[in-house]
Design a protein around this nucleic acid. Structure first.
Length: 206
DNA sequence: GCATGTTCAGTTACCGTGCG
DNA sequence: CGCACGGTAACTGAACATGC
């Protein structure tokens, strides 16, 4: 039996496992692709040769995708976040938002990306994601802002612009509503809680 | 002086809904 | 599915306050 913990994010945005309430249990035998890939990843981590991190990351991504495929093909969408993947048009629009939350997205531009009318897109998106497109976009922006504040490189004004707000005051107000703290306070707390963790945990999926 | 927070009036456009 | 419409939440920009 192998036990492990994945942290899988899309860009600097959605944490795919954030809402996971119980462990995922998968069965596989010696001929199973999932088992083979997992064992190869573990072997890389144990050997610690040159390129270990890149190889292990690539193999673990394959494990994750295999799990996603199983979840989708079985219709057992245990992770609500994954249900969005069953709707390619919504996924396309969501991917565009997640790839660049700071872009000036609107329901109209996103519905065009999805190839749907605005009303149809609204209904499909809300059904798949559980919230309206603009609410989802705001969540993505706040998550990216959180990451940028924790990185402690840009000013709050710069971060506000980076995540899609033309005004710092609007950004601060939305951020406070989302996290319960002002951006400056949030950054101070983040820096205090992780003084030696700069640069850790980057990458599109881990 | 600089960075950041607060407030507020005006503006924008999103969202929900009803209808064809 | 597309369109129209009203209510309203969100955004903007400016002015001012606060802390270092």
């Amino acid at each position: 039996m192998i036990c492990g913990c994945f942290h899988a994010s899309y860009g600097s945005s959605i944490d795919l496992f954030a809402t996971l309430a119980s462990p995922i249990v998968e069965r596989f035998d010696a001929t199973d692709q999932l088992g083979y890939r997992l064992e190869a990843a573990l072997a890389e981590l144990v050997d610690r040769q040159v390129g270990m991190e890149a190889m292990a990351t690539a193999l673990l991504k394959q494990v994750l995708i295999t799990l996603l495929r199983r979840s989708l093909s079985s219709g057992d969408l245990r992770l609500e976040q994954f249900s969005i993947l069953s709707d390619p048009q919504v996924t396309r629009a969501f991917a565009r938002m997640a790839a660049n939350p700071g872009a000036p997205h609107s329901v109209t531009t996103l519905s065009e990306t999805a190839g749907l009318s605005r009303s149809a897109f609204m209904a499909r998106f809300t059904g798949a994601v559980g919230c309206s497109p603009m609410v989802a976009l705001r969540q993505l922006r706040m998550r990216q802002a959180s990451n940028l504040l924790t990185a402690n490189v840009l000013s709050i004004e710069q971060i506000a612009h980076a995540v899609g707000y033309a005004s710092r005051s609007s950004f601060s107000r939305v951020f406070r509503r989302a996290f319960g703290n002002d951006p400056a306070d949030y950054r101070a707390l983040a820096v205090l809680s992780a003084p030696n963790d700069a640069g850790a945990g980057r990458g599109p999926a881990r």
